[in-house]
Amino acid sequence: MYAQMVKSENTDNGPELDAFQVRIDAGEKIEPKDWMPAGYRKTLIRQISQHAHSEIVGQLPEGNWITRAPTLERKAILLAKVQDEAGHGLYLYCAAETLGVSRDELTEMLLDGRMKYSSIFNYPTLTWADIGAIGWLVDGAAIMNQVPLQRTSYGPYARAMVRICKEESFHQRQGYDIMMKMAQGSDAQKRMAQDALNRYWYPSLMMFGPSDKESVHSAQSMKWRIKINSNDELRQKFVDQTVPQAEYLGLTVPDDNLRLNPETGHYEFSEPDWSEFFEVLNGNGPCNKERLEARNKAWDDGQWVRDGMMAHARKKAARAAASQVAAE
């Protein structure tokens, strides 16, 4: 997902922890000033920032097509979408900041590789159909994960998710609409649409992360309600929802083993290549270098702007203070 393989930490025990767990089990929201186990705090910081970083890095693959969007309307829709993603990043950094870290610290950890972002944004957008596929599949997969997180135990995170989910479902519909136009279009457009599905199908399945049935981290996160469903559950839900949509478009999901099991009502499907997933996480995805370089460049090039703004704010405050003194 946007937060993949987040390690959870359980460091506390004692009566406070028990009382905390009682609150979680009762469905209460934990707020920034409430007592919380250090492990809960640490895990949440990791998860929320990874999610925030994903929104910010996620601007890049789609931003890649803003200047080449085929019509004025498509350009406006895409620009607004990428802007929404920046907004999501912003809410999420704010949510993370309530846990006692600063956005600048988190940004630096992203930029020097200490913190991760979702594997999906390390794949290239090669044709306009990729913009459709990302909206349809990537935002679609994000929704699967984020809708349940609206009920997560940490208040600021849950509230950020509510705002974000509304916009993500727009994005998904707009993405599907792009695919629809192309699937009904010329032969070249159909080919583009199929090619985009071929390239984005397995990376989208990877977004949910490897099976975590046996994972102690996941068990702890679920106990704390900062993870609601298992990775496999969400992946299954995603496949079940997406395959009929692909069929409706007249596109073929690139999986020879895909079939509907009439007994379970669920699709059976091939696992993605997990060795590729781990390579991407380790920095060997097709675009890892470009993505991090672009973010680093934006940050470094912007340094003088941020410094200049700060200097102006200090001067302004000093002038205001001086005129106050003069007036007194």
């Binding site: 350009k75 990428v82 912007g302």
Partner: peptide, 24 residues
Amino acid sequence: SEWCGHAPIIEEDIALANIALDLL
């Protein structure tokens, strides 16, 4: 719109996109 994803701070990224959208 060429700035999208590359601005000095997120708030500026969002504001620039807004202006690009208005002009569009």
